[in-house]
């Protein structure tokens, strides 16, 4: 095929539209017996590019390792999210159940016991015993307030404010 009938050796660039050129390039060379120099040149360039790139790709592919291990790994990792989602769901439900149930068990009885304790009248004997205990505590605190831990070692001189007479009174 020749798009320039005037001179077959010097085809014009505008002789073929882009669509025509595209269609001609897609036709195998063996079926394009008579084509313009432009089509022939572009076809040759594309053929070279195709062949060169395929050679490069074949060389590079020949040194690639097996994909079996990667396929197994990817299958394992693709399964992980399903397990993790299921595990997270179970843990969330369990935690929620324990939280709700635990609150119900621990809060309500405790509140009831507290209310009962606060409202029940205390026996007089218990009150008297509590008062005695409080008094003894007060006495102990007042005694210790004038003594320091080092007083037991007889180092009264270190405490200028402490009077020996008082100590003798206590010990007598």
């Amino acid at each position: 095929m020749n798009a320039n009938p005037n001179n077959s050796n010097t085809p014009l660039r505008d002789s073929l539209s882009d669509e025509q050129l595209s269609e001609l390039l897609a036709v195998p060379a063996k079926f394009a017996s008579d084509e313009t120099a432009e089509v022939a040149s572009l076809r040759a360039a594309l053929d070279d590019y195709r062949a060169e790139m395929l050679q490069w790709a074949e060389r590079r592919s020949s040194v690639q390792t097996s994909l079996v291990a990667a396929a197994q790994r990817s299958r394992f990792w693709s399964a992980i999210p399903q397990w993790s989602l299921a595990a997270v769901a179970v843990v969330a439900v369990a935690a929620g159940t324990v939280f709700v149930t635990g609150n119900h068990v621990t809060s309500n009885p405790a509140a009831e016991e507290t209310a009962m304790t606060a409202s029940a009248p205390a026996p007089k004997a218990d009150i008297a015993e509590d008062n005695r205990l409080l008094n003894s505590i007060d006495q102990e605190l007042s005694f210790h307030s004038t003594h320091t831990p080092v007083d037991g070692f007889g180092l009264s001189a270190t405490h200028g404010d402490t009077k020996p007479a008082t100590r003798s009174e206590v010990t007598d």
């Binding site: 085809p11 882009d18 120099a37 432009e38 040149s41 572009l42």
Partner: peptide, 14 residues
């Protein structure tokens, strides 16, 4: 591609 390659391939001015 035509504009870029067509003017150079084979030294032809297309």
């Amino acid at each position: 591609v035509r504009a870029r390659v067509g003017n150079r391939v084979g030294g032809n001015t297309l």
